[in-house]
Amino acid sequence: MVPIEYYLILSVVLFAMGAAGVLARRNALIIFMSIELMLNAANLAFVTFARQYGQLDGQVFVFFVIAAAAAEVAVGLALIVMIFRSKHSIDVDQMSSLRE
């Protein structure tokens, strides 16, 4: 038997690691992956509470999160490709102006 707190603290640890990645890394692709990690940690908490309360609603929410993540990745990667075409770099420190 695993206490529910263990699942929740694991979710928090994964979320904090994703947040640290967003703060510390400069590669736009790694930052995107860190965002995925944070979404995943939130999903883990959703499923944990769905299990605890015996409700399916939490699991349904995970599907919406996955769909939002897919949409975000598609648009975000398209943006990264465009930025790389004009600046030849995906370093977020280079992305300081809106025009080309």
């Binding site: 707190e5 929740l8 603290i9 928090v12 640890v13 979320f15 904090a16 690691m17 947040a19 640290a20 703060l23 510390a24």
Partner: peptide, 17 residues
């Protein structure tokens, strides 16, 4: 960044446990 993430984890652990 590492310190801030550690603070987040500690705070959550305090609240949870």
């Amino acid at each position: 960044a590492v310190v801030l993430a550690g603070i987040l984890i500690l705070e959550a652990a305090y609240l949870l446990f």
